[in-house]
Write a protein that binds this DNA or RNA. Structure first.
Length: 425
RNA sequence: AGAGAGGUGGCAGAGUGGUCGAAUGCGACGGAUUCGAAAUCCGUUAUACCGGCAACGGUAUCGGGGGUUCGAAUCCCCCCCUCUCUGCCA
């Protein structure tokens, strides 16, 4: 959620930012928030004044009662009765203005950073750099959904039987590869200075609001109605919410956490060839990195996170590219997002395996995640996160790119983690 | 899940209708003392919002919400959470 102070003091920048996102009714919505804010403040001033008078009278009545002056006390009560009605009315109007203002603010996406390119869709994203070399595959190369059958390492039909489509069962070398990748990613994150955490994978409503999944993206999460809990779509949600309603001592900054969790996405409305095999699932594994930094350090932190993810792809010997997302393709809460994609050789397409975002104070504002700045002033922190990495598409690329007549050759770095160096029948 | 107890400031812990944002202790910070330190002494020690250039003033917050009252940490109702015992269970 954007801060009102930003809307007020940097209106032009906000409008320009919303335009970059192709937000349709920017001018009207921003103006509406500012109007509501003015009304809200006027209400609050009146309310506080009436309340102050009522408090003072209550004190006087207390004194009169103590000295036995019933009549004097009763005389004052006619005024407090009036005030009571007033206060109630002011409080109602204040609450209404606040509610409307919050609802409007919930609608406004984060303001893109200056470096974010304009654009409407994924086609307008900017390729920042590429790494690795695309392999030359023989004509009879197989896509990963054929390879997993050939080597019997992932079974979609079994998943369908016990749960439903999009819940694969990993078997044998496939299961061990999952475990190896998780361990590899966690070890790399730890070596890069991230503390490992194991959060719950069900979160409450407040956490959903904290990181911005609620109220808008309700339909993307699995919901347990009996206890009003949500299955996490990413460990960003629990790990970032660890710091909700906190004032973090400055010496603990920056916060750097990493965690592995399964992730759950309903992906309502997605279908077609794009979602074959491991390309899109309802449940998948992901290692996440999260940073919480002082505002002046978040841009630099963001770059180190991208570099870290890149280093993973390099060690996995996968061809990749780094994209800077355009205003139209960026997530609602982000101010700058880099996507990292790997080349899936048999599908001949790039697959997104990581999204590294700086949310600046947008999440922190909802989370009330703050620190004490110089001079003792509490100030919102910046939150950042990135996948490091999401497993299924990594597996897809590893399988496709490294297929040989003798089996799937695995990158060196995984050999010790897996306990084998190639996948074979 | 059943029975009981309880949720107060960074922590511990008083406070059962009135000047209580809240005693006291600990911790932390600043200062005095000291060659330095310990001990001791003095002071400070929450968050949010509103008004104000500021100093400062006001309002709210004692798990959350609602109610009674001129006035609620304190009384009433609902919800959440924690602890103990019983049950169940990895």
């Amino acid at each position: 959620m954007l801060q009102i102070s930003v809307l007020k003091e940097q209106t032009a920048r906000v409008l320009a930012g919303l335009a970059k996102r192709n937000y349709p009714t920017a001018e009207a919505d921003v103006q509406a928030v500012l109007d509501l804010d003015q009304r809200r403040r006027a209400m609050q001033t009146q309310h506080d004044a009436a309340q102050a008078e009522a408090n003072e009278l209550a004190r006087q009545i207390g004194g009169l009662m103590k000295s036995g002056d019933r009549a004097g006390a009763d005389a004052l009560k006619t005024r407090t009765a009036e005030l009571k009605v007033q206060i109630k009315r002011h409080a109602d109007e204040l609450a209404e203005a606040e509610k409307q203002q919050t609802q409007l603010l919930y609608k406004l996406p984060n303001i893109p950073q200056a470096s974010v390119p304009a654009g409407r869709s994924a086609q307008d994203n900017e390729v920042v750099r590429e790494g690795g070399t695309k392999p030359e595959l023989p004509a009879d190369a197989l896509p990963h959904w054929e390879l997993i059958k050939k080597y019997d390492i992932i079974d979609f039909e079994l998943g369908i039987k016990i749960t439903g489509a999009g819940f694969p069962v990993y078997k044998g070398q496939g299961a061990r590869l999952q475990r190896a990748l998780i361990n590899f990613f966690l070890d790399e994150a730890r070596d890069a200075g991230y503390q490992e955490v194991q959060p719950p994978i069900l979160v409450n409503e407040a956490s959903g609001y904290g990181t911005g999944q609620l109220p808008d993206k309700e339909g993307q999460m699995y919901h347990d109605a009996a206890d009003n809990l949500y299955l996490i779509p990413t460990s960003e949600v629990p790990i970032t919410n660890l710091y909700r309603d906190e004032i973090i001592p400055v010496e603990k900054l920056p916060i750097r956490n990493t965690g592995y969790t399964p992730c759950f996405r309903r992906e309502a409305g997605s279908w077609g060839a794009d979602v074959r095999g491991l390309n899109r699932l309802h449940q998948f594994d992901k290692v996440e990195i999260v940073q919480i930094t002082q505002p002046e350090h978040s841009y630099a932190a963001h770059e180190t996170m991208v570099t870290h993810v890149e280093s993973l792809l390099q060690k996995l010997e996968l061809p990749y590219r780094v994209l800077r997302l355009c205003g139209g393709d960026m997530g609602f809460t982000s101010s700058l997002t880099y996507d990292l994609e790997v080349w899936s050789a048999a599908q001949s397409r790039w697959l997104e395996v990581s999204s590294v975002s700086n949310f600046e104070a947008f999440q922190a504002n909802r989370l009330k995640c703050r620190y004490k700045a110089e001079g003792g002033k509490t100030q919102l922190l910046h939150t950042l996160n990135g996948s490091a990495l999401a497993l299924p598409r990594i597996v897809a690329a590893l399988l496709e790119n490294n297929q040989t007549p003798e089996g799937i050759r695995l990158p060196e770095v995984l050999h010790s983690y897996c306990g084998f160096s190639k996948i074979s029948a």
